[in-house]
Design a protein around this nucleic acid. Structure first.
Length: 154
DNA sequence: GCCAACGTTGGC
DNA sequence: GCCAACGTTGGC
């Protein structure tokens, strides 16, 4: 899941009550559909975009499955969408909880260097989806690397 | 700041 | 339903 740290960062997530926050503001159908497929307990790579360096900043997990994104109903919200109503919500979000902040961001450049991560959506040129799937293999590879680096449990 | 790679909109 | 124009994302 991608976020611009200037908007919402891994540190911001850690500072939330219960280190939990809803992932609002997704206004892309594909990204929405991926969120609707998530279940509590699913792992999340928290990715920082539009910063220096871009890359994976932390690990989180889904703690609440998709429910209507109420920010779409708020006229004053940046992501207001008049076509989404309480009766017929168009946009959804999940709640995620921080698991661990990484000591150092894993830069996108390094992800691209790893042959094991070939085909990972985020490494694809022009990959713009803010919520995207990570294969079992890629997830395991990344977490095993992190386990070596900072004692994170896989 | 540039620009590739999208997704969306709207005329036809 | 096609597709040009436009707007946005996001790496670099």
């Amino acid at each position: 899941m991608k976020s611009e740290p200037g908007e919402f960062s891994m540190d911001d997530l850690l500072n939330m009550p219960e280190q939990t926050e809803h992932w609002d503001g997704v206004r892309n159908y594909q990204a929405r559909n991926f969120m609707m497929g998530m279940e509590p307990g699913d792992g999340v790579l928290f990715y920082h975009s539009v910063t220096q360096p871009v890359g994976i900043a932390g690990i989180a997990k889904v703690v609440k499955k998709a429910y209507p994104d109420f920010t779409a109903w708020d006229e004053k919200d940046k992501h207001y969408d008049p076509k989404s109503t309480e009766e017929k919500p168009r946009w959804f979000m999940v709640d995620i909880q921080a698991v661990q902040k990484l000591d150092e961001v894993i830069p996108l450049a390094r992800l691209k260097e790893s042959p094991e991560l070939e085909g990972m959506e985020v490494t694809r040129k022009g990959s713009r989806l803010s919520v995207q799937p990570v294969s079992e293999e890629h997830w395991t590879f990344i977490l095993e690397k992190l386990a070596g680096l900072q004692g994170l449990e896989v």
